[in-house]
Design a protein around this nucleic acid. Structure first.
Length: 623
RNA sequence: GUGCCCGUAGCUCAAUCGGAUAGAGCACCGGCCUUCUAAGCCGGGGGUUGCAGGUUCGAUCCCUGCCGGGCGCGCCA
């Protein structure tokens, strides 16, 4: 049931080391990969399945014992090597102990004829190169027209429930450019997974519990008191950003002086702390949090909820503008309120994976490959962040997700082994969690890095970036890079409305097709019926093959969790189109030639539009 | 110190399960607008894939060891 690669993966991961930080790919996930290898229903798979069938037929005659050998079809880089290449003979050479070229000849002799194959050649060390007939390529246009916006969708994912959790930034401040990359990646990944046949839930985990949230509340409260004319020194480790003043002013506008308390009561007895004495500053903050809580009483909850809601609202607004929408906003606090944290820990305890030491409760994560055991409940009784995360991931699985994807910043990679350990300790499959890591983003302006300091509040927000660069270019620049590569974001290039900017290159191809069709002025509904026989020239063949490849690209991008592959593909399609445009006039007098060419470029436009849509980039008709 | 990620053309990056002659864009040089949008096209130079071994028909890809850069290693989140 497992094919070779999956079997290798199974062996490789059998001992379940904390290997989560490696670049995640479905092929490393045996269960998912093995099943996916057996499906074939997207448009191009019809062709691939057909071709593979020809080889299977030959294989069962030539080497019946090796019938299970998977038939792999590559797309050769060199067109002289045909449209598809098969290395079956070379694979068999080892097993049969015969010369690959000799085996290739035997396979070739036994392959059935096909209306889609013009010839098969033996080349190189024993490759079998397949050359398609025009009919095989023309069929792709028909499929694009018949499926339209659905062209490219496949069933690789078999409807499996997948959750993609991404961004999940603390609501204690606005999103910055690093979050933007995670947002673009996560959203495009989710879209690609959907297109590949998964049932996807996009989720944002709100860290609305814990000390950071308290610090935000206190920061807002102090600013509020300032706004009300009370003078309370602002804590040096509070949140300094202007947005905190905004929240404070809003509170004053809505609730008036409801949260005002006598300054003397606030400051009385608070521990002293010099700004440069960090432990003292933190201790003072803890005291201030406690003081705020006791002085405000029930009002503390009101204030916190207001500030939190507004912060989350702000984040949601920016993400909406960025084209990113979530199906679920999951509250960390709700994990506590519903008792899920206690439940998850009880489960671990039942299974004997918790112990008490130095007054704290520990999870024995070393039993599952982690470097050291982890505290889940502190000596002071408070749960750690890890505790709620255990509960959260337990809950994800209970909600029926067969696969959960956590998109994290690369600086969190050390956290992966302990979460996987927790999953395993609770009796779940740790491989159901895949964690793509997003590397850092560095902004460049005028060839110089843009300096950002979180302390000083001088960092560039995602909103700034959208104001500056625009949604389409921002999304494209974020996504046109493997996620595990550092990203140098060239602001000048992204902003430039010039031929240097790759995002416009693709959009321009799309707009050009619209322009030609506009110029033509005919009935587009007539194009699907066009006779494609005139499409024989090399650039036409090239574009037809792009149409065929598109569904494969989607599947590949899904399998590798690599939406950047789609970005590169679309650029290549645009390049082929521009080349065709310059070499060939479409609106020629010969009606049959004209209709065939218009049908082709309309199909190309559909693929561009479908692909750009998955990336969250617009497909304009005019530029 | 230890764990993870990365190292490909001058720069920014690709490379389809380990496949055939490692590809684009930018920059540089030279051409193409009387013709569907020149935000475009065509051509040219540019490489010991960080280094050294190993695995095999075949390695940018897998393994080992070095070199260089980044990140992590809390009863923080």
């Amino acid at each position: 049931m497992f094919h070779g690669p999956a079997h290798d993966a199974l062996r490789r991961q059998g001992d379940c080391e904390p290997s989560g930080a490696t670049r995640p790919r479905f092929k490393d996930n045996p269960a998912l990969y093995a099943m996916s290898r057996m499906t074939s229903s997207n448009a191009s798979q019809d062709l691939r399945t057909h071709l593979a069938g020809l080889f299977d037929a030959a294989l069962s005659v030539v080497a019946p014992d090796a019938r299970a050998t998977p038939v792999v079809l590559d797309r050769p880089k060199n067109s002289a090597h045909g449209d598809y290449a098969c290395n079956l003979a070379m694979q068999l050479a080892r097993v049969l102990g015969k010369n690959p070229r000799q085996i290739a000849q035997q396979i070739l002799d036994q392959m059935p004829d096909s209306p889609w194959v013009s010839k098969v050649e033996i080349a190189g060390a024993g490759f079998l190169n397949i050359f398609l007939t025009p009919a095989a390529r023309h069929d792709a246009v028909r499929r694009v027209f018949s499926t339209g916006t659905a062209y490219g969708k496949g069933s690789f994912g078999q409807g499996k429930k997948v959750q993609v959790e991404f961004v999940s930034a603390n609501p204690t401040g606005p999103l910055h450019v690093g979050h933007g990359r995670g947002a673009a990646y996560g959203d495009s990944l989710a879209a690609v997974l959907e297109a590949a046949g998964y049932t996807v839930t996009r989720e944002y985990y709100i860290n609305d519990a814990g000390r950071q949230m308290d610090i935000l509340s206190v920061s807002a409260w102090v600013r509020y008191l300032e706004a009300c004319g009370e003078s309370v020194p602002f804590p040096p480790n509070g949140y300094q950003g202007d947005y905190v003043r905004d929240r404070a002013n809003e509170l004053k506008a809505i609730d008036g002086t409801r949260y005002v308390r006598p300054v003397a009561q606030i400051l009385d007895g608070l521990p002293e702390a010099r700004d440069d004495d960090e432990p003292a500053v933190e201790a003072r903050m803890d005291a201030l949090i406690e003081r705020t809580r006791s002085l405000l009483g029930e009002d503390f909850g009101h204030l916190t909820r207001y500030v939190l809601d507004r912060q989350v609202e702000g984040i949601r607004d920016v993400l909406n503008r960025f084209g990113v929408r979530f199906d679920m906003w999951y509250s960390e606090r709700s994990l506590y309120d519903s008792g899920r944290v206690a439940e998850a820990l009880a489960l671990l305890d039942e299974r004997g994976h918790l112990y008490v030491q130095d007054g704290a409760r520990w999870f024995r994560s070393t039993a599952f490959g982690d470097d050291k055991d982890r505290v889940v409940q502190r000596e002071n009784g408070l749960y750690t962040y890890f505790a709620s995360d255990i509960a959260y991931h337990h809950d994800k699985i209970q909600r029926g997700f067969e696969l959960t994807v956590d998109v994290w910043g690369a600086d969190h990679h050390g956290y992966i082994p302990r979460v996987k350990a927790a999953l395993q300790a609770m009796g779940h499959n740790p491989e159901s969690l895949i964690v793509p890591l997003i590397q850092l983003v560095a902004l460049f302006r005028g060839g110089e890095p843009v300096r950002m300091g979180k302390r000083s509040g001088s960092y560039v927000t995602l909103e700034d970036l959208l104001d500056d660069v625009g949604v389409d270019a921002t999304r494209y620049f974020y996504i046109a890079r493997k996620c595990d590569q550092h990203l140098d974001f060239d602001l000048d290039l992204a902003k430039s409305q010039s031929n240097d900017n790759p995002v416009y290159y693709i959009q321009y191809a799309h707009a050009r097709v619209s322009s030609v069709l506009e110029q033509w002025g005919g009935d587009r509904a007539s194009l699907p019926a066009a006779d494609l026989a005139p499409l024989e020239a090399p650039p036409e063949r090239q574009l037809l093959q792009r149409l065929i490849d598109y569904p494969d690209v989607i599947e590949q991008a899904a399998r590798d969790l690599a939406p950047h592959a789609l970005a590169f593909f679309l650029r290549d399609v645009a390049a082929d189109f521009h080349s065709y445009y310059n070499s060939t006039h479409f609106l020629v007098p010969e009606e049959d030639v004209k209709l065939a060419r218009l049908a082709l470029i309309t199909a190309v436009q559909q693929v561009l539009r479908n692909g750009l849509s998955l990336l969250g980039v617009g497909a304009p008709d005019k530029m």
